[in-house]
């Protein structure tokens, strides 16, 4: 049974196929309105989420399917001590596909090994979040016309930011990539990401604390939030949370066609004044995420022979 736990579970050909499907859904939504008629998606969210859960639910509804599930661990049997494996074995009896978010890293992999239906990782702690990366990829494709020869700056929490690690992994498979890794010293990209991905693949990168200096070089600026929930120590969080704030003034140095992305939610790292700048793409990312989730749900259900 095929599940998607990591963005690298999808080949570049499959990413291209999903992008094309998503583009087709955007162009002809009515053609997809009944594709999942009578099918059920279970959203098992052991950790709070607004965007991802609603995006999955909206995606399934727009495919004509139904949604069951829970939105916090306290309203599931996990509160009684049930294992992840037992939970998904049970849910496999009710649903055709599962989207799971869990605070523990690797929980969706455990789920995929126990489930008899496809499992989509909807975020596992600070580890992976492949459908966010799919949203990012569709946004880059639609805004920049492809994935090759791009200079991408990732900024903010590059240590705990799972979306950043997944994006680097995903983009490392395309030609002509250059990366700017912009963060405070304490939140730098883990060395294994640099060693195993960037250095191994010979991808040029600059590691810097200077956002304004990097700005003129970038085709894509990917901002991230410093995440309170990833810190064991509140003092460290408070010290680092305001490290980078993107303002209209800083945008003056950027290329006219640079795009600003953010996985959201934002706290204060992108000034609201940027929202009206045509280069701001973070709300487009949200919409693109829904289309990519629709494409992925269809692909996995087709592969499973369910639709």
């Amino acid at each position: 049974m095929r599940s998607i736990i990591d963005i690298l579970d999808l080949s570049t050909d499959e990413i291209a196929e999903l992008v094309q499907t998503a583009q087709d859904i955007i162009a002809k939504p009515a053609d997809y309105a009944e594709v999942c008629h009578g099918k059920k998606l279970a959203t098992l969210f052991f950790e709070p989420s607004t965007r991802t859960r609603l995006s999955f639910e909206a995606a399934m509804y727009e495919l004509g399917g139904h949604v069951i599930g829970f939105s916090e661990a306290q309203s599931s049997s996990a509160a009684k001590g049930e294992s992840v494996a037992d939970t998904v074995k049970t849910v496999s009896c009710y649903a055709d596909i599962i989207a799971m978010r869990h605070p523990k890293e690797g929980a969706p992999l455990v789920a995929s090994r126990a489930a008899s239906v496809p499992v989509i990782n909807a975020g596992d702690g600070g580890h992976n979040h492949p459908t966010q990366t799919m949203a990012d990829l569709l946004t880059i494709y639609r805004e920049k016309g492809g994935f090759e020869n791009l200079t991408i700056g990732v900024c903010g929490d590059l240590k705990f930011g799972r979306t950043v690690h997944s994006l680097i992994n995903a983009m490392s498979r395309y030609k002509g990539l250059k990366m700017y890794l912009i963060s405070p010293e304490e939140l730098k990209v883990p060395s294994y990401v640099k060693k195993d991905v960037l250095k191994k693949k010979g991808i040029p990168y600059v590691q810097t604390t200077d956002l304004e200096g990097a700005m003129p070089e970038l085709d894509v600026l990917y901002m991230t939030r410093v995440q309170r929930e990833r810190f064991f120590n509140e003092e460290d969080y408070l010290r680092l949370k305001d490290s980078y704030i993107l303002t209209p003034d800083k945008m003056k140095n950027a290329k006219k066609d640079m795009i600003v992305m953010h996985p959201l939610p934002r706290v204060n790292e992108i000034s609201v004044a940027i929202d009206d700048d045509p280069r701001a793409c973070y709300f487009k990312q949200v919409l693109n995420g829904k289309y990519m989730r629709m494409a992925l749900i269809m692909k996995l259900l087709k592969e499973a022979g369910t639709i």
Binding site: H102, K104, E105, G106, A107, H127, D196
Partner: peptide, 27 residues
């Protein structure tokens, strides 16, 4: 933060990710 810390009777699995430096990583 790993699920293997809490999940009952989980298979503890590591894969060789870097042979030269003998690095194993939790799956």
């Amino acid at each position: 933060r790993c699920i293997s810390m809490t999940e009952q009777e989980i298979v503890h699995e590591f894969r060789l990710s870097d042979r030269e430096n003998r690095v194993y990583r939790c799956v």
